[in-house]
């Protein structure tokens, strides 16, 4: 059976989304790791002496700051990360929905013997 243009477009779209999904998964994973690091950091920081000056990294250099100055920075960094993760996850679930639609269509058209759309 010849593949028609509309079907080829759907196959292309599926493959594009599949690639994008892999990228997003990696990005979400690395953001989550970063967030865990910040959580650990927060715990450690609570144990630190209030009057100690700690070296906090800003850009490429370390700035000596007190615990009370670091905390709000840490919170705002964490909020930014959470927002980023949430927005990526929304995109991810939208894409998964579209992929399911395409999958149903393409399997219906070509049958499971002629086309394979399972993730490795």
């Amino acid at each position: 059976m010849d593949v028609q243009w509309e079907d080829q477009q759907k196959i292309n779209e599926y493959s594009k989304l599949d690639n994008r999904l892999t990228d997003y998964e990696l990005e979400i994973k690395s953001l989550n790791e970063r967030k865990e690091d910040l959580d650990d950091l927060e715990m450690e920081l609570e144990l630190a002496d209030e009057d100690d000056e700690l070296m906090y990294k800003v850009g490429d250099c370390f700035v000596l700051l007190k615990q009370e100055e670091i905390m709000p920075r840490l919170e705002s960094d964490k909020d930014k990360l959470s927002d980023q993760i949430a927005s990526l996850e929304t995109k991810q679930s939208d894409m998964s929905k579209r992929m399911e639609e395409l999958k149903a269509y393409l399997y219906g058209k070509f049958g499971r013997d002629s086309i394979n759309l399972e993730r490795k």
Binding site: E53, G59, C61, L64
Partner: peptide, 22 residues
């Protein structure tokens, strides 16, 4: 991002601060 972060930090600093720089 790093440059922007540093500049924003400098903007917030209203008094002297100490740093270990490279």
């Amino acid at each position: 991002r790093k440059s922007l972060e540093s500049v924003e930090f400098l903007m917030q600093q209203k008094s002297q601060f100490k740093t270990r720089y490279e």
